[in-house]
Structures are given as structure tokens and as C-alpha cells.
Design a binder for these strands. Structure first.
Length: 559
RNA sequence: CGGGGUGUAGCUCAGCCUGGCUAGAGCGCUUGGUUUGGGACCAAGAAGUCGCAGGUUCAAAUCCUGUCACCCCGACCA
């Protein structure tokens, strides 16, 4: 036994070889142990076990390690793990979204779906597989997506010579797994449209798509992801442009009022434009590490796709015209945005309006007697809370009566980001009060039951607003106008190159939309995120080329 | 796809360089006990064909070859 403990020591290994090789007796083994103990081999005893064996007595201050300051990307992964949102799957680049994470997505879907329908759209469903030839019809589109397409070439498996299944039955024409559905939907639009009276067509699809990404991160970039893609066709350019902007507006509304993430609506530069689009708009949000995250896009496709796919109609004058199309989408990436915008060093914080459960009731009792009185009280409290309207539904409440320690249970809900925790024990029962813990601020207080019921909505709204305000303040305090390249570089240069700290933010600069600019920025790991739609016209000169620019764009590091 | 790294228990890893004893630790899990308004303690226990396939050897987690997967850094991206 002592030998095993000391196995890590080089000296032990050396002696062990002697003991087992030339000599190989029990007596020699004891000698080895004695020798090692005498030498106080540094790795012998102290360095065993995982990292947690250090400082066993003092409990960690925060639930998540490392903290945001220490290592933001790692913190992000740990939050997702601690909150039980998702995990990596056995399939390369694909994640499993777990119930808590999926429930957030379902809530997003529900709200967005309502918004789409309110703006006249209908849901439909198109095939997962797209004939290769379809993709090929629009040149820019091909170029943009070809590299990341999954391709299906066979339709059957057969036992091979070694008994293992091998693909058989090669397809005449390979199918690609949709990276996006412009082509397949466009081909259907072409059949559906004959007259201007058939327009507009306003379709949305909830689906999964596949983009064979090389580097993946949970929710932010995975090979397969869930999203919604809107596709519309219009008789006039004006109408299509309006649609593009309208849906961008819907996204911004959703992001700010439901995700509680402030966003900037802007137009993308040529380099960031959707392959095949005439104009791409996006909503851009700042995460807590001050990097930008594109949270939704809306594209004006002009007649590029309708010409490629022959979406033609007869107009009122009897002439033949190509339709004007748009597409727009948001994805499960929004869950990533939610995590990175709001969470803290104790785990996830979910905005109340999207929370799978807004409140959790934690019964506290010692013995069966307490339980007999506490549980019914909790049940009735739950029932009363569930009568209350909030965010287009009723307040969602759970009683967590699992048989695990109270402290541990409490922390689980903190890590999952439940907005309000309601602790009910014998003492609270006696006072007819509930001990309320608020996730975003950490505040705790005892609140009379009647008051809690009366202020429940207000409390949730308050958290929702606070999260938005906090995110907005972060963005404002890390945004600035920048008027020289030196200043720009200085702002985005980490002080510690080896372990870059959180730095930079949004720089509002004059740049022209030109490959020269992109290259210069790229070398510094920067990109033009967008040209804000709300930005004022302001004559200036491109910081790099000196050519005239009429509007500032946002330069930032991005996901 | 280029450069680097790692695959050993559910998780984090030690052991490998220099082959040989029943393959270990911490956390988690199960059971029992003590606890209980804050991430408990003590004891016992379950759990691993050492990524996979070959090869070398009396003997392979350890050496060799191949392969797969994952991680980090680049190029690409919602």
C-alpha cells in the first residue's frame, strides 16, 4: 500500500526497478519505501488527487470556477454545465440540449412564433435534404456554404466483408443536408407563384440545420443547430425591403424585451454579408467579455434567388417580373447570448420572462411532523402563485421536494438561474411569511405571504428590467468613439499577451467598406460588426484609407 | 486543413519516460449512522476489457505502427 501511494516519485520508480528486477524480494521493497520517505520525495504524498484536494477546509466563494475575470471562455462552459443546459454529444460538433436548456429554447420559440404570426407569417416545413444542384444555382450562395455542407451520397447499409455495415446504393445525385433553406424553399415558391395576386408569400420554418463547423462551442457554434428561418417573396422591391427591416425590428424587440439583451440594429459590410444577399442586417449584442455577438440576421435578397430559381409572376400590367425575396433567422445561439449576457460567477441567470420556472419553492423541514405542515403550505402557495398572469402565461412554479440536503439543493437552483427562490420552513410558517432569495442581486428577505402574492409580478418585472439595465450599462461603459488607428490598437491590445484579460468593447469609427480595411482589422482580430441604422450621418475620413465616410461603424472582437 | 496536446471509474486526473506485485486518488454514486435555515461528517460498498486495431515480449495502461475521438492555437463561420 505505501508503495502505491508513493508511486509517482521518480526515485521510487528507480528503486522499484531495482527491487523488481535484480532483487525482487519483499525486503527490498520495504527498503525502497524507507528510502523514499527519508528523502521526502516532493511528489510522493502531497500532490495526490485532483485540483480540489487543495484547500479542503475553505469552501469556494463562488459556484463557478474559474470566474469570468479569470477565464471567460472556460467560465462559459462551466456555467452551461452547472446549470445543466447542455453537453457535448458523442457526435462530433453536435450537442445535446438538456431539459433546462431546451425549455428556455421552447419559451423563445413560443414568443417568437407569436410575433411572426402577428406580422402575418405562417409556419411550414421543407425537406432536410436538398439536391446538390439546387445549391449550385446561386453563385455566391455556393461559395458561402459549399465548404461546410454535409453530403449524403448513399441510401442503404449492407454488411461488408468484415461484417461491419458499409454504405451501399449510391445516389445518382448527392443530397446535402440543409445549411439553410433558401434554395429548396425558393424552388417551391417558383411553383406557387404565378400572378402578383399570389404575393406576398410569408413563410416561416422551425428546423434544424447543419453546418460542418471545425471549431465548435456549445450553443454559439455547433455543427447542427436549431433555428427558425423566415422566407418571403414580394412583388416589389420596396415591399421586400420593408419586410427585411420589419423582421429585424421584431428580433430587436424580442432580444430587448424578452432576452433582456440590448442590441444594436445595423447593416453588415460586404465581407459579413449573407452569401447571395443584397443587404444583410443584424442585431449585435455585447457580451460580458465585451465581445460582440450577432444574435439575429435579416436579409434582403433582391432578385438574386428568384432569378436563379425562376420565381416569376405576371404583374398587374401583364408583364413578367421576378419576385423580390427576403430571409431572416435566429437560432439556439440566443441561448448562448442569454448565458453570456447575464450570468455571474455563481452560474446562470435567466430573465424571468423566458425562465422555464420563474420560482422554485424549497420546503425546509427536519422531521415528518414539520413535513406534514410545511408541504401543504407549499402546495397551496404554489397553487396561488400559478393563478397569477405573467409574460403571456401564468407564473411557472416548482416545488423541489427532493430528498437532498437543503444547502446543496439551494445552490443547484442558484446555478440554474431560477429568478426567485422561496424557502418555506417551520419558522416561516409560524409568521405566514416566505424567505425570498433573488437570483440577480443575491438579496434575501422574509416577505409576508399576502405581500408576496401581491408583488410577485412586480418582483419578476423588476428582475427582468434590472438585467436589461445592467447589460445596457455594460455596453455603454465599454463603447466609445475612436478617431485614430493608434487609439484603436491601444484599446484592443491586451495588457497581458500570454493570458489576455477582458478588454476593448465597441469602437465607433469611420471606415469604408473595403477589403483593405477588413484585412487590416482581421490581422488584429477585429471586424466591422455593423453600421448602426440609428447612427447619425457624420462626415469623416476612413481611419485607414483616408477616403470619405459618412457614418461610423462598430468595430469589435466578435464570436 | 496546418501547428501543439490529451485519451485510464460517472467527472477531474495520477501511474507510462525506465514493461513485471491485486491499476490508484479526489469528487460523485449506493448503504448505514450522526447531522440538518445553508454547497455536512464518519464508516462501509459498487464501479475501469487503461480510446480502438494490429505488432514486439515469457509479460503491455506502459514500447512500436496504424486509426479514431476530443481539447488548445491558427484559417472559416449564425
Amino acid at each position: 500500500m505505501p508503495l502505491r501511494i508513493l508511486k509517482g516519485c521518480k526515485i521510487v520508480r528507480h528503486f522499484r526497478q531495482l527491487a523488481s528486477g535484480s532483487f525482487g524480494g519483499a525486503g527490498e521493497r520495504e527498503l525502497v519505501i524507507a528510502a523514499c520517505l527519508y528523502l521526502k520525495c516532493p511528489r510522493g504524498v502531497g500532490n495526490r488527487g485532483g485540483p480540489r484536494s487543495f484547500g479542503m477546509s475553505n469552501k469556494p466563494k463562488n459556484a463557478i470556477s474559474p470566474t469570468r475575470e479569470e477565464d471567460y471562455p472556460e467560465w462559459y462552459q462551466q456555467v452551461i454545465k452547472a446549470a445543466d443546459l447542455a453537453e457535448v454529444s458523442p457526435v462530433r460538433g453536435c450537442m445535446v440540449i438538456k431539459p433546462w436548456g431546451y425549455s428556455i429554447w421552447e419559451n423563445m420559440q413560443q414568443v417568437l412564433d407569436r410575433m411572426f404570426k402577428a406580422t402575418g407569417h405562417e409556419n411550414a416545413y421543407f425537406p432536410l435534404f436538398i439536391p446538390l444542384s439546387f445549391l449550385q444555382k446561386e453563385a455566391d450562395h455556393v461559395e458561402g456554404f459549399a465548404k461546410e455542407c454535409a453530403v449524403v451520397t448513399h441510401h442503404r447499409l449492407e454488411p461488408g466483408p468484415d461484417g461491419k455495415l458499409v454504405p451501399a446504393g449510391e445516389l445518382d445525385e448527392p443530397l446535402i443536408v440543409r445549411p439553410t433553406s433558401e434554395t429548396i424553399i425558393g424552388s417551391m415558391f417558383a411553383r406557387w407563384v404565378e400572378s402578383y395576386r399570389d404575393l406576398p408569400i410569408l413563410i416561416n420554418q422551425w428546423a434544424n440545420v447543419v453546418r460542418w463547423e471545425l471549431r465548435t462551442r456549445l450553443f454559439l457554434r455547433t455543427a447542427e443547430f436549431l433555428w427558425q428561418e423566415g422566407h418571403t417573396a414580394h412583388a416589389t422591391e420596396v415591399e421586400a425591403r420593408e419586410e427585411t427591416r420589419r423582421m429585424l425590428e421584431v428580433y430587436a424587440d424580442f432580444a430587448e424585451n424578452w432576452l433582456a439583451v440590448p442590441v444594436i440594429q445595423g447593416e453588415k459590410t460586404a465581407a459579413e454579408r449573407f452569401p447571395g444577399a443584397v443587404v444583410t442586417y443584424a442585431i449585435e449584442a455585447m457580451m460580458q467579455d465585451r465581445k460582440a455577438l450577432q444574435a439575429g440576421t435579416s436579409h434582403f435578397l433582391g432578385q438574386n434567388f428568384s432569378q436563379a430559381q425562376n420565381i416569376k409572376f405576371q404583374d398587374a400590367q401583364g408583364g413578367e417580373s421576378f419576385a423580390w425575396t427576403t430571409s431572416w433567422g435566429v437560432s439556439t445561439r440566443l441561448v448562448g447570448a442569454l448565458v453570456m449576457a447575464h450570468s455571474d460567477d455563481d452560474g446562470l441567470i435567466v430573465p424571468p420572462r423566458l425562465a422555464p420556472r420563474q420560482m422554485v419553492i424549497l420546503p425546509i423541514y427536519r422531521g415528518p411532523d414539520d413535513r406534514a405542515s410545511v408541504l401543504p403550505y407549499c402546495e397551496s402557495l404554489k397553487k396561488d402563485l400559478e393563478q397569477i398572469d405573467f409574460a403571456g402565461g401564468k407564473i411557472r412554479v416548482q416545488i423541489d421536494d427532493r430528498d437532498i440536503r437543503g444547502g446543496e439543493k439551494n445552490w443547484q437552483h442558484i446555478k440554474r438561474g431560477v429568478p426567485l427562490r422561496l424557502e418555506v420552513g417551520p419558522k416561516d410558517l409560524a409568521k405566514d411569511s416566505i424567505f425570498v432569495g433573488r437570483r440577480d442581486t443575491g438579496e434575501k428577505s422574509s416577505v409576508p405571504r399576502a405581500e408576496l402574492l401581491a408583488t410577485a409580478v412586480q418582483r419578476l418585472d423588476e428582475i427582468q428590467r434590472h438585467l436589461f439595465d445592467r447589460a445596457l450599462q455594460l455596453r455603454e461603459s465599454h463603447s466609445r468613439r475612436v478617431d485614430s488607428l493608434d487609439e484603436l490598437q491601444a484599446w484592443f491590445a491586451p495588457r497581458n499577451e500570454d493570458k489576455p484579460e477582458i478588454h476593448g468593447g465597441f469602437a465607433y469609427c469611420h471606415f469604408i467598406d473595403d477589403p483593405l480595411v477588413n484585412d487590416w482589422l482581421r490581422e488584429r482580430k477585429l471586424t466591422v460588426r455593423c453600421i448602426p441604422l440609428s447612427g447619425e450621418e457624420e462626415p469623416g475620413a476612413c481611419l485607414l484609407t483616408g477616403r470619405p465616410s459618412s457614418k461610423r461603424c462598430i468595430v469589435a472582437k466578435a464570436y
